[in-house]
Amino acid sequence: MQLKLFLLIISLLFTLPSFAQQKITIAFGDALAPWVMPETNDGIIITLIREALEPAGYEIEAIYYPYARRITSFRAKDVDAACDMNLKTMTKENLTGFLSDEAYAYENFAFALKKHNYKFTHLNELASYSLLSWQGAKTHLGGEYAVMANKNPLYLENHDQELQVKMLYLERFDIIQLDLQIFKHYRAKIQKEGQINTHLLVDKFPLFGASPNNILFQDKKARNAFNKGLKELKANGRYEKIFASYTLGN
C-alpha cells in the first residue's frame, strides 16, 4: 500500500504543470528603437519590465502600438499595462489605473541641420518653424511645450520616429523633436541603407530636459510587483547594465 501511494505521489509530481507564470499583456511603442524593437521582441524597456516582473511570477506578452492606440487600448482594458505614461497623460486622457514609479527617462532634443545656424534658447522660439514631433508629445510634455505646439501652424506629430529623422535630412521639416538615443539609432540605420545622405552636420538644442516615464497598470498587485522589482534592479546594479548592454548608435 505504501509503495502504491509513493508511486502515485511521484506520478502526480511529474504530471502536474510546473509553476505557472501569470501572463500580462503590455502595450509598447512600435517605433522606438533601441528602447523598443518589435522585430526582435527586444529593447531597453522590454528587458527592464521583463526582469522586474518575472521574479514575481509574471510572463510578459508584448503588444506594439502607436502612442494613441496605447491610450485607447488601455482605456478599453484590452491590455494589462501601457508604457510611456505619466500623470499628465492620465489627467489629459482621463485614464484610471495604477501608475508605477519612474521607470526610465527619454532625453529629448530639438534637432536641426547645422547649415541653418539656428540659435534656439527657449521653447517658444520653435513656434515659427516647421516641427515634426513624436505622437503624443503635446499631451505627454504639456506645459510650455503644449503652448508652443498650439501656436505653431506647422507643428505635426507622427508615431514613426524613423520617418522623423528622414524628414530632417530630406529638409521637409526645419526641426524634429525626439530622444537622443532614438535619433542616433535611426540615423545609423538610414545611413547604412544608403538612400538618404545623413552626413550633414546637425545641431541639437536641449530645450526640453529629461522626459520621465512610468508604466500604467490595470492591477495594483502587478504595479506593486513591478515597483519592487525595479528597486531591486537598481539596487543590485542590473538596471545600469541593461542600459549599457544596448548599442545606441554613434
Results as ranks from 00 to 15, higher is better:
Ala81Gln: 06
Asp80Gln: 12
Ser130Gly: 07
Ala112Pro: 03
Glu51Pro: 14
His159Glu: 08
Trp134Glu: 03
Ser73Cys: 13
Ala146Pro: 00
His116Cys: 06
Tyr65Asn: 09
Asp78Tyr: 02
Lys88Gly: 15
Leu48Cys: 05
Lys115Arg: 07
Met148Ala: 09
His116Phe: 03
Tyr118Val: 12
Lys151Gly: 02
Tyr64Gln: 09
Tyr65Leu: 15
Asp78Glu: 14
Thr139Ile: 03
Leu126Tyr: 03
Ala146Ser: 13
Ala82His: 07
Ser100Lys: 04
Ser100His: 00
Glu61Val: 15
Glu61Cys: 11
Leu95Glu: 01
Ile45Thr: 03
Arg69Phe: 05
Leu53Gly: 08
Glu61Ala: 13
Ser128Trp: 04
Met90Ala: 13
Ile46Arg: 06
Ile60Lys: 01
Gly136Leu: 01
Asp80Met: 12
Met85Pro: 07
Glu51Lys: 06
Val79Phe: 03
Asp160Tyr: 06
Glu54Arg: 14
Ser73Val: 00
Asn150Gln: 15
Pro38Val: 13
Lys77Thr: 06
Ala127Lys: 15
Ala81Trp: 00
Lys115Pro: 06
His140Gln: 09
Tyr104Trp: 15
Trp134Val: 12
Tyr118Gly: 08
Asn94Cys: 08
Leu123His: 01
Leu95Ala: 07
Lys151Val: 05
Ile45Leu: 07
Ala146Glu: 09
Leu123Glu: 01
Asp80Ser: 13
Leu131Ile: 03
His116Met: 09
Leu126His: 05
Ile63Cys: 04
Pro38Asn: 13
Glu93Val: 09
Pro38Cys: 11
Thr72Glu: 08
Thr40Asp: 12
Thr139Arg: 09
Met85Asp: 13
Phe109Arg: 00
Ser128His: 13
Pro153His: 05
Leu126Trp: 03
Glu61Thr: 08
Glu59His: 14
Tyr106Arg: 09
Leu126Ser: 05
Thr139Cys: 02
Leu156Asp: 10
Ala81Thr: 09
Phe74Leu: 11
Gly97Val: 01
Leu156Thr: 12
Phe120Ala: 10
Tyr145His: 14
Glu51Ser: 06
Leu141Asp: 03
Tyr145Leu: 01
Ala76Gln: 08
Ala146Gly: 08
Lys92Leu: 08
Ala103Ser: 10
Leu99Glu: 08
Tyr155Ser: 10
Met85Gln: 15
Ile45Gly: 04
Leu156Lys: 14
Asn117Thr: 08
Ala81Glu: 00
Ala149Met: 05
Phe120Val: 12
Asn108Thr: 10
Thr91Pro: 08
Ala146His: 05
Glu59Ile: 03
Ile45Arg: 03
Asp78Phe: 07
His159Cys: 12
Ala81Ile: 10
Ala68Val: 09
Leu87Ser: 13
Glu54Val: 15
Ala56Ser: 15
Ile71His: 00
Tyr104Asp: 00
Gly43Cys: 11
Pro55Arg: 10
Lys77Ala: 14
Glu93Thr: 13
Pro66Ile: 10
Ala146Lys: 04
Ser100Tyr: 02
Thr91Lys: 14
Met148Phe: 04
Tyr58His: 07
Ser73Asp: 12
Asn94Arg: 11
Arg70Gln: 06
Met37Arg: 04
Tyr67Gln: 01
Arg50Val: 10
Ile60Met: 05
Tyr67Val: 11
Asp42His: 04
Leu87Asn: 13
Gly136Lys: 04
Leu53Arg: 02
Leu113Cys: 01
Ile44Lys: 00
Trp35Pro: 02
Asp101Tyr: 11
Arg50Asn: 15
Lys92Cys: 05
Met90Pro: 10
Pro38Thr: 14
Tyr129Lys: 08
Ala52Ile: 02
His122Tyr: 10
Asn124Trp: 06
Pro66Glu: 04
Leu123Ala: 00
Asp84Tyr: 04
Glu59Gly: 07
